[in-house]
Amino acid sequence: MFKKILYFIIFVIIIIIVLNILNLQNDSTDTKTKVNVEKGNPNTLRYLAEKRKFYVGSAVDSNLLRSSSKYTKILGSQLNMIATENEMKFDLIHPQKSKYNFEPADKIIEFAEKNNQVVRGHTLVWANRVPAWVQSGNYNKEQMKQILKQHIQTVVGHYKGKIYAWDVINEAITKDGKLNDSIWLRTIGPEYIQLAFQWAHEADPNALLFYNDNGMENNNKKFNALYRLLKKFKDSNVPIDGIGYQMHSWIARDIDYSNLSNQFQMLRETGLQVQITEMDIGMASPKNESYPSKAQKQAEIYSKVLDTCLKNSNCSAFVMWGITDRYTPKYKPEKPLIFDSEFKPKKSYWSLVNTLKEYNKQKK
């Protein structure tokens, strides 16, 4: 009887040991369901980007810096650049004529400084997010110029030396290549764009100044109009350093990567930098396609855009409009970002890692 009990105990112990070994093997072989988020890890985007003095970043929500430790851990370990998502838009940072609200944006600056990251300030001038006090004030041209100048120089001056690059103008060109209707265009006229760059430069001469927009990669009519405007600025010594390609897209949309590269080359010849500034790739449609298939398509688009950027010397940053599907400002089923809603890396994350690794290997 004693021997039977002993044999049974030994049998149970052997079963437990075997099960533990199998679990360890599963953990070790499924390498692409987990990622070490510690700084300095060679599989992080940040580590790979910094080897080539390149920036990888994400838009950041200041409220989440207070409430989600998983969110902040990924941001700090994976990225060497962050961008303000909403905190520097006119209506939030300057809600009343004589009142500025810097606290939310200050939190992002503090986080960046703590994690040795640079910051993109988004955005100084846009047709949207204009506060009611500006829209309903019935101000004349000179008054509107003064309002805009004071706003730009107060905000840029507050963050002087702390912002690496500003999106000075956001989305001022339509898909037809015309100036987008806005309160700034109606009251000040087309010169508001040039003036905004001049005023921002006066407030912080060391900050890079960008024009930021979406859709140029597949629309040469829009790109050509923008190119003519920015080339005119460069020829006239208007202080502009580059153009931001937002790259909001979706898996069913074709992108002409050769055309995108040609645009980058034209901008380089004009002396302008390029940065990818708001990339996300929606995959809600087509609804009848499997998730693995859609995830693979998303990964390929992320990889190809990054590859196009890396192969053009004037493309200096790759920034996404968020880092995790849990907090995307888009319609949730789009799942447009590189970490899923449980903070696990998706195929899109690994496609970026592998693209950076391949680029670094070629550049040795």
Rank of each mutant, 00 (worst) to 15 (best):
I9H: 06
F11M: 14
V18W: 10
N26A: 12
T29M: 13
K34G: 10
V37Y: 15
E38C: 11
P42M: 06
P42I: 07
R46W: 02
F54Q: 00
Y55I: 01
K73G: 09
G76M: 06
L79F: 15
A83L: 13
F90W: 15
P95A: 04
K97S: 10
S98G: 05
E103G: 06
F111A: 04
K114P: 00
N115T: 05
V119S: 02
V125W: 00
R129F: 12
W133Y: 10
Y139W: 09
N140A: 01
M144L: 03
L148Y: 01
V156L: 01
K162M: 04
A165M: 09
D167A: 04
A172Y: 07
K178C: 07
D181K: 13
P190V: 03
A203P: 01
L209K: 08
N214D: 14
K234S: 04
V238L: 04
I240K: 07
Y245H: 11
D254W: 08
N262D: 14
N262C: 10
Q263V: 05
R268Y: 11
T270R: 03
Q273Y: 13
M279D: 08
N288L: 12
I301Y: 09
V305G: 07
L306F: 05
K311C: 00
S316W: 00
S316V: 01
D325C: 10
P329I: 05
K332D: 11
F339G: 02
W350R: 05
K361L: 07
